[in-house]
Structure formats: structure tokens, C-alpha cells
Design a protein around this nucleic acid. Sequence first.
DNA 1: GGTGACTAGTTTACAGCGTAAAGAGAAGGG
DNA 2: CCCTTCTCTTTACGCTGTAAACTAGTCACC
Lengths: 255, 255
Amino acid sequence: MTVFAAQGDPRRTMELLWGVAEHRPARKRGLNADVIVDAGIAIADAHGMDAVSMRAVGERLGCTAMALYTHVPGKNELVDLMYDRVLAEIPGGYDLGAGWRAAVHAWARDQWNFCLRHPWALRVSQARPVLGPNEFAVLNTLVGILRETGLGPRDLRPVVHALGNHVRGSAATVAEAREAPAATGMSEDDWWLARGEEFASVAPDFAERFPLVVWIESDRDPMPEDAGYMEYHAEEAFVTGIDLLLDGVETHVVS
Amino acid sequence: MTVFAAQGDPRRTMELLWGVAEHRPARKRGLNADVIVDAGIAIADAHGMDAVSMRAVGERLGCTAMALYTHVPGKNELVDLMYDRVLAEIPGGYDLGAGWRAAVHAWARDQWNFCLRHPWALRVSQARPVLGPNEFAVLNTLVGILRETGLGPRDLRPVVHALGNHVRGSAATVAEAREAPAATGMSEDDWWLARGEEFASVAPDFAERFPLVVWIESDRDPMPEDAGYMEYHAEEAFVTGIDLLLDGVETHVVS
DNA sequence: GGTGACTAGTTTACAGCGTAAAGAGAAGGG
DNA sequence: CCCTTCTCTTTACGCTGTAAACTAGTCACC
């Protein structure tokens, strides 16, 4: 399920996001939006987004699924709140002493780590932003770094998009590679082995049909033994890709 | 639901993908893997990935959901087959007469159009590739263009990843923006309006808290009236982002 | 203090999902 | 003609988000 930003009762959701919901201290019996969001995050971190069901969250809190609806408008809104909450982990200030390139790399690295710590966050739609405070804080920080290039908003907007796409895309590959064994009941090695065997028998003329695929996959460094195939190559492509983008940015800076 | 490449009976799935399954012509009563895949694609194109259920596919073909299991191992495998089938639409040859930059742009444009024609294809996991013939054909084509740069596999692999991430990321934003109204029952304009109103009341100090967000969003050309907000800006960022990447590639070519 | 309003939480129910298991009915070979 | 084999249907299970109705506990007020 792709998760869309909340549709029902936008006011209530925004109030919860920005923390201006009137905190009803009276008559609280333990349950409130905060602990529900925490429980959701704990489940998502441990077992993935698909494991986050209203029943599962309720069970973790010792109540029924329906009890949650008193404090949270619905599941979509719960996911929005979870998303904005974890975004707060991302640091807000980067040292610009070593130049904007180094700062962007540090930012990208933090973003990457964040995505792997909370892979489910990658499933929240970017098309209808959650519009929570921490989402803006992250953007504000990145723009603060990029402004050091001396470029203006028109030039920097595509950079922001491209960086975000690259981080999210690379991280998604790794995140899915990690989720897959649990979802399919097959480890990465087993999967590639099983696929590879079938592969040879089903497409014996592979090298003739796709010579350039063989070419692009050639000339690789040997992989560390303990690394997952997809994971290792995705991380490599992630770092090099950031550099590629920044090389492109630099060509505009010089001019 | 993120769709993972098939786990059950890899042999059968690979045979179906590569078309070497023994075509059982005898005793066919209309139903076979091909028409099932076509029906799935038709539903997905018209109503999105979430509308593709075994029951829905069955209904479109005038049979029950369970009848499909005779011809297709399961839903994950059906989606894999749908994915590889539509990938065949992507052209296989690009004119290199105008240089590799123009060819990459043409490739990216075709890829972009493909993603918007079949937005559900963006939901197929990249971590466990489907390994169908058309997936390799697309890669083969792109590498054929990029090799014109004169760079080797080690340099080009990150380029392939970054291009793919950027196209997919940009297209996903648009695709989700188009899906969202149906999923949330609220048009894009209504949604932004409703959110915007709450926004002002809930975060009146926005400009002071996130000055750089305000800055980066400034200095925009006026938007065409008939364009969706997200859609318009995502396409703009897509095209400019490709150029940015290629600028980066070019710095390596010259050296 | 009694009483009505409000609120938090439970119970039940519904329509949808993927698919396992078993049965029905037709086609083809001996 | 019978028996095997294959296609398709029926039924069922456990899962999902959440609407609706109900229960119980707390507070304000006459």
C-alpha cells in the first residue's frame, strides 16, 4: 500500500502534527496520540510497514484496534505522524567549514542512514507531503548547505529534487533487499542462486542477446564476503552518484 | 504493498517470463497466462495497482479468482509478468547522430512517458529484479547510448543507477499525485486548499522558522493554469535534473 | 448526593484481500 | 467404456481498515 497523506479531517491531523492539539490532560487513561505513534514506529522499525496494522498497534498497547481511533483519525494519519516523528532524528546543522560539497556528502550520509534505520519511511508518498514541521526542517537544512554554492532558487530547486531522488532511490533498493527475505521466506543468496540456475537454462543465449549488459557488469572489484549483493552495489552507486550530481552542480557554479 | 519478485516455483516463473513454457495448446478453454497478464495490465492501467486483485482479474475474464492459479503461480508472479510485458513498449534503438546527450534525453523522455502510462510499474521492487527479457533489453539500450561517452563500466554503472533513480523518483511523484485523488476522494486543488488553510492557522510563524524553505520556493515562473501543482514542478525538476547529471558525466569525459 | 452529559474503550460486523483444499465436470487415450 | 488428467468452481481461513452500537467510568451541576 502506498500511503497517502491524510485525507480525513485535515484540521485535526495538522494540529497533531504541529503539536497544537489541545492536550487533554484530564481523564487520561494512559492512551494518547504520542504513545500510539511510538508503538507504530516500534513495530515498523522491527517488522516493516506491512506489519503496522491497527490491531498490531493496539495489541502492543494492550487495547483493541478501535481504541486508537479515539486519539488518531485513522491509519493514514497515524503513518503521517510516525513519519514526521522520526524525521526529527535528522540533524539540523552542518559544518560548512570544509565547503558545501563535504556538507552535502554528510547530509546525504545522514539521510541514507535514516532511510535504512526506518525503511518504511520510504513508503510515504512524496506527492502529497505530510506537511509536518520536521519535513520542512530537513528541507531548510539542505537549502542552507546548497546556498553556499552561490546559486539561486531556480538553479537549486532541481538539485534538491535530484539529491532527494537519488538518496531515496538508492536507499529503497537496499531497504527492499532487506525486507525481501522476510517477505518471501528466502535469503538473498538463496534467491539469487535459485534464480541464477533457472536463468542459465531458460536464456542460454544471454551473452549474445544482451552483450552490453554483460559489458557494464564487468570489471568489478571483488566484493567483501559478508556483504549482500544488492546492498553492497547500491551503496557504492549511491556515493558515486552523489559525486556525479555535485560535479554537475559545480559546472554551474564556476560559470 | 511493495511487490517482490516471485518466490514460489522460480522455474515456472522464469519459463513464463522467457516464453519457453511448453505451450499447452490442447484442451484450452480460453484461459491462459497471456490473457490473464493482459487483463491485469488493463486493470492496473485503468484503476491502479491497488485495483489489481485476483478476484478483479478473474471477473474481467469471466471466471473465478482461483481459476487463475492454474495458469499463473500467484499474484506476485502475475505482477512480474505484467511488468515485463509492458517493458516491451520501451523502444530499443536511439539515434546517436546528435550525440549521446541528446540520446540520453530521448531515452529519459521515453522512460518518463512509460512510467506515467503504467504508474503501477513503479511499485515493482528493484531489489529483486524480475529478470525478464525486457528488463535486460532496456538496460542494454541505455548502456549502448552511454558507451558513446567513451567511459568504462566502472564509471558508467553509477550513471545508470543515478539516471534510473532520477527518472523513477520524479515519475513516482507525478504518478502518486495522479493516484491520490482517487485514493483520498479529494482533488489536488481541494487538497492543497484544505491543507493550506489549516497550515496558516497552525504554523503562523512559518516564515521565521523556515526562512530557507521560503527562499527556495521563491522566484518561480507563473504556472500554466491547467497544470497540476506537483505534476508541473516535478516534470520541470525531472528535465533539469537529467541535465545536471549529464553535466556531471561530461566532467569525467573531458578528463 | 443524585443525575445527566461526556468520554474512553470494547464488541460486533462488513467488505475486501491472497490462497489452501476439495470437489465438479469435461476431454482424451487405452 | 472407463480411467486418468486437466480446468475451473466452491468453500473456507485468517488477515486488513473502520463504521456502528454498546458499556463503563468520570465530571459538572442542581
